[in-house]
Design a protein around this nucleic acid. Structure first.
Lengths: 174, 174
DNA sequence: TTAGTTGCTTCGGTCATCTAACTAATGGAG
DNA sequence: CTCCATTAGTTAGATGACCGAAGCAACTAA
């Protein structure tokens, strides 16, 4: 790797910033890569998978397009097109809301549910397996650090809502 | 409820795995979002920016399409199209290799270089600013944790090559 | 009732990406 | 020195994600 490039120093060791950024990059890359493979093997695109996961994470297994858009950080128009595809595959269904007829609830079908079960969360798999092996204090440490980093990064970003399928985790450790 | 995995201490952790995954998700989302904003403000797409960064990170500010493809984890065809766009904007140039005429070197133009200078690395900006504020031990802690997580995630993935623009880092304060 | 707001879809684009050819150069086996 | 397999890149043709703007309902207030 590189190294001596930034040598001069005063207070903060620049290599540390560097190291942390590199580690972050690795994490990002690994995740992206994995997400792609995963989606591919499940016959779903990452975005489609994400929608399924978000919906599945809701208590009633349903969500409105606008909620999805917000959670995913994309526009409603985008959600519409992704949902279209999921509908076409019979993984979700659009059900008009009864309380407000402008709203549509996107709900999982049985097929969709099982498709999801086939495809574990992108981050999980390998990571979770390793994680549970750690000592208690190490886990706590990691969580604290990650949250710290997350806080540093998304400070201004509204609501980074966890998508993240608690369900899938439960499934594992039951 | 859950967490039967740990026994020793008070059964603190109501799902740490969860927490860590959520934090990770936040990090990913923040990064993606930021990358988009950034790219938008620089008039470049994320992929284009990434190519520029990788090239700039090379000692001679040049890289072959295949090298780019590998580092980015995409196909050569993709690189070709991204590079096409960069060429169209005059940010890079294709220069046939002299040693092997099958090869092409993609090099930064002056314009490309300055475009890059305008656009700091996606991860940096906010994150780095916060990072350097931390106490020394906290930084060390974070780095260790991040590396640990990275190792857990990319175990099998080859080469997570740091793209990451050493240049932009010392740009922060030299 | 009328006007404004909200939720969603439709439309027309751009960009990233892929796989499958295809072209050109290289380099090794005869 | 001549073939041909291999390697580097590009071209072609698709699909998907995404966006902004425009359109349409349905709600909400005045």
């Amino acid at each position: 790797m590189r190294g001596a490039i930034l040598s001069v120093m005063n207070e903060t060791d620049p290599n540390r910033v560097d190291d942390s950024l590199i580690a972050l990059r690795r994490i990002l890359r690994a995740t992206e890569q994995y997400e792609r493979d995963l989606a591919a093997s499940a016959g779903l695109s990452p975005a489609q998978l994400r929608v399924l996961q978000i919906i599945a994470g809701k208590p009633d297994a349903s969500a409105t397009p606008s909620a999805l858009a917000q959670q995913m950080g994309v526009s409603q128009a985008t959600v519409t097109s992704v949902v279209d595809k999921l509908v076409a595959r019979g993984l979700v269904r659009r059900v008009p809301s009864e309380t407000d007829r402008r709203q549509t609830n996107v709900i999982l079908t049985v097929t969709g549910r099982s498709a999801l079960d086939e495809a574990p969360d992108a981050l999980q798999q390998r990571y979770v397996r390793e994680f549970v092996k750690l000592e208690d204090w190490e886990q706590a440490q990691l969580v604290a650090s990650l949250e710290r980093v997350a806080a540093m990064m998304d400070a201004h970003l509204i609501d980074a809502s966890p998508v993240l399928t608690v369900g899938a985790i439960d499934g594992k450790r039951k």
